[in-house]
Design a protein around this nucleic acid. Structure first.
Length: 573
DNA sequence: GCCGTTTTCGGCCCGACTGTTTTCAGTCG
């Protein structure tokens, strides 16, 4: 996909323009375009000019630049800019607390061109004494470089959310907290997050702040004010806390939940109606009369919009839909009636089928599918045909004993590097459900990898493609595939795509899920459980599904057992 | 640079905290 490349260039242009001190709105236009290109599920390279212009934030000029890049591999104006602003200077902007004005100043006065030079001169205390810079600013820059070096990359949702919940619980117990809520990308359940935002109401903000900056986990206090404080935890995650008045809680929640792009659009809509939105409420412009803000719903209602669930607030069309009362009725955890990707101790899981059944029953499920690995995956003790048939026999027997609960006999069949399935059709035909996935040859060419998935989908017995892009957040990039083509074949063959709920996978991601849904492709949301506690990862899968605008009807494991079996058989016919 | 049931030109979201100042600029979210 060219999308990331083009988005990166537009962001870089925005950085360079910032350092030059250009019109801030022009800079924002580049950033907005970059954001919308990155979030676009279709390959930009395949769009017609008309389709390009339909992307919000892309006008004539930026469409020209995109076409120029696709044609020549370069953008002339970008190359010009790079000549004007020394290479490396833009990277200074990635240092927290250092913005374009300071970057420009540092270059003009000290000829600093990159972070290494900055670090050296800051260490020698050469920064202090420049206009507007004294010791404190120098210290902050040094600290910013340290933070940057520690790699404060985005962390997987599944790693940060438990931490955030702990902090919320601690504050509830130890500080005078009335209302408390997570906000930011964590509340939107983005698959990765950079920091934790917490919003609080209290009759004693001062004490809340005091407790907060003395949390057991605090490594560093970045700022402490009357209504806003920030810390860094021992895990190197930044936590921002805001205390607001009860009367403003809803407005503040909306404001701090974001996304920034969503909020900007919301405010633009408000301005057009003669209203003003800030974190304290929604106001009439002419006399500043407060119309609402205690509840988050106020903001949307007064603008004549449906309430937009946090997971949708990304400026991906949700405000237009809210205006037309056309928001999806999002899937919920309680809609899920079973898990269709579960491993036992026959391959690399930790539990017996019986143990898994009782755990599933506890969670209110009506069925699960046992899908151990196939023989090709030796490392996971993949099953050969003989062991698979033994497992099937055991499951058949168990099914006869179970009351009100069903086991589906399945397999997670390995898609071999040449595109063949690890079992013959004859064996696959004996399964209730076949989940196919790639576990090897991640570095094959895009064509090869695409071909492997296509060959799996064209197999009449393959019901689901599991973790379709193979990513492990923060550890392994998705392998390269032609997603447009994959989606087309999924639709044609009636193959479902999995949203793997394992927190490091979350694969398909939200963007692809939304596109796939629009094409009418069906999904399963599965946990890939190897350990009983992992059944609870379903919650993460649901969150990604919500972010992909999925409704109950889009997801096969919301069906009752009989309906599900009917759907699974349909592809084979 | 984008965008238009106010506009093809003139707008473009809004406020807190910090560090530097002595009323404010820069940065951030």
């Amino acid at each position: 996909m060219k999308n990331q490349e083009i988005a990166a260039i537009f962001n870089e242009i925005a950085d360079l323009l910032e350092i030059k001190g250009e019109n801030p709105f022009r800079i924002r236009a580049y950033r907005r375009a970059a954001q919308n290109i990155e979030g676009h599920a279709k390959n930009i390279a395949d769009l017609t000019r008309e389709e390009l212009l339909e992307i919000p934030g892309i006008g004539k000029d930026l469409a020209d630049k995109i076409e120029e890049y696709l044609k020549t591999g370069k953008v002339a104006s970008y190359e010009e800019l790079k000549k004007e602003v020394p290479e490396g200077l833009a990277e200074l902007l990635s240092v927290p607390s250092l913005g374009p004005k300071t970057a420009k100043l540092l270059h003009e006065k000290l000829k600093i061109k990159n972070i290494d030079e900055l670090e050296k001169l800051a260490g020698e205390h050469k920064l202090a004494g420049l206009p507007g810079i004294k010791e404190k600013t120098e210290e902050n820059i040094i600290r910013g470089i340290e933070m940057l070096k520690r790699g404060k990359e985005r962390q997987p949702l599944g790693r940060v959310l438990p931490l955030a919940s702990d902090i919320v619980e601690y504050l509830k117990k130890n500080a005078p907290v009335k209302k408390i809520s997570l906000a930011g990308s964590l509340r939107r359940m983005k698959d990765t997050v950079r920091d934790i935002d917490i919003l609080i109401t209290s009759f004693n903000a001062h004490d809340v702040m005091k407790t907060f900056v003395h949390l057991p986990d605090v490594k560093e206090v970045l700022m402490q004010g009357a209504t806003k404080s920030s810390i860094i935890t021992a895990e190197d995650i930044q936590v921002d806390l805001r205390v607001v008045e009860e009367e403003s809680f809803g407005a503040a929640l909306a404001y701090f939940t974001g996304s920034k792009e969503h909020n900007i659009r919301l405010r633009e809509m408000a301005v057009k109606k003669g209203l003003k939105i800030n974190e304290y409420g929604i106001f009439r412009e002419k006399d500043n009369k407060k119309l609402g803000g205690k509840n988050e719903e106020d903001i949307y209602n007064i603008l004549g919009l449906q309430y937009v669930p946090p997971e949708l607030r990304e400026d991906r069309g949700e405000l237009e839909a809210a205006l037309n009362k056309a928001l999806p009725k999002l899937i919920e955890l309680k809609d899920i009636r079973g898990d269709l990707h579960v491993h036992t101790n026959q391959s690399d899981g930790s539990h017996t089928v019986e143990e898994l059944v009782s755990a599933a029953e506890e969670r209110g499920y009506e069925y699960i599918a046992i899908t151990d690995h196939s023989k090709g995956l030796g490392i996971a003790r993949g099953l050969n045909e003989e062991r698979l048939m033994e497992e099937k026999k055991a499951i058949d027997a168990l099914n006869k004993k179970l009351r009100g609960f069903k086991l589906l006999m399945g397999i997670e069949v390995d898609i071999r590097s040449d595109g063949r399935m690890d079992f013959s059709d004859e064996v696959l035909a004996k399964m209730d459900i076949v989940v196919a996935s790639i576990h090897s040859g991640f570095r094959q060419s895009k064509e090869q990898l695409t071909k492997r998935l296509v060959s799996a989908m064209k197999n009449p017995y393959v019901s689901v493609i599991a973790h379709p892009t193979g990513r492990l957040i923060g550890e392994r990039d998705p392998y390269e595939i032609d997603m447009d083509y994959i989606l087309k074949i999924a639709k044609e063959t009636g193959t479902a795509l999995e949203i793997n709920a394992y927190p490091l996978r979350l694969d398909l991601n939200d963007i692809y899920a939304k596109t796939a849904k629009e094409l009418g492709i069906k999904f399963v949301i599965s946990t890939d459980t190897h350990l009983i506690s992992q059944f609870d990862y379903m919650f993460y899968g649901i969150s990604i599904a919500k972010r992909g605008w999925l409704e109950k009807n889009d997801v096969l494991n919301t069906l009752g057992y009989n309906s599900l079996m009917k759907v699974l058989k349909k592809k084979r016919e």
